[in-house]
Amino acid sequence: MDELMKTVLTACIPALTVVFGWALNKAVSIANGYISNKFAQSCLQNAANAVFNAVQYVNQTYVDALKEADKFDEDAQRVAYNRALAAAKKALTQETVTFIKETFGDLDSYLKPMIEAQVRSQKVYM
Rank of each mutant, 00 (worst) to 15 (best):
A91C: 08
K67M: 15
E116M: 03
A84Y: 04
Y62C: 07
L9D: 15
E68T: 02
I115R: 02
T17E: 07
A23Y: 00
A31V: 01
A117F: 03
E95P: 10
T17Q: 03
M1P: 06
G105V: 05
S29H: 02
F39C: 07
D2I: 09
I100E: 04
R83F: 15
R83Y: 05
F39N: 03
E74H: 11
A40H: 14
A76L: 14
T98L: 04
M126W: 14
S42K: 08
Y62F: 14
T103I: 06
S121G: 02
D75N: 05
T96D: 14
M1I: 14
A31K: 00
D2V: 09
A50Y: 09
L107N: 01
D64N: 12
L92F: 13
A69M: 11
I30S: 00
D75H: 12
A47M: 15
V19D: 00
S29W: 05
V124D: 00
K38R: 15
P14W: 11
D108T: 01
N25T: 05
N59D: 11
V97Q: 09
L4E: 14
T98C: 07
K71L: 15
A23N: 03
F72N: 14
R120V: 06
S36L: 09
T98S: 11
T10M: 05
F99T: 00
D2Q: 15
T7I: 08
D2N: 03
W22M: 00
E102S: 07
Q41K: 09
D75C: 06
N32P: 07
L85Q: 10
R120H: 00
E116W: 05
K123P: 11
D73S: 14
Q41Y: 06
K38T: 09
Y62E: 05
N82T: 07
C43R: 00
Y57V: 03
V63H: 05
I115A: 05
K38V: 10
Q118E: 08
S109E: 13
A48L: 03
V51G: 04
L111G: 02
K89H: 13
E3M: 11
T96M: 10
A50H: 09
E102R: 10
K38G: 01
D108Q: 10
T17W: 08
G21K: 02
Q56H: 14
A65C: 11
I35E: 12
Y62P: 05
R78E: 11
T17N: 13
L111E: 00
A117E: 02
A87T: 12
C12E: 15
Q94A: 14
Q94D: 06
W22Y: 11
W22T: 01
L111Y: 06
D75L: 15
D70M: 10
T7R: 12
E3W: 12
Y62S: 06
A47C: 08
Q118S: 06
R83Q: 12
A48H: 08
D108C: 03
F20I: 14
A23F: 00
F99W: 08
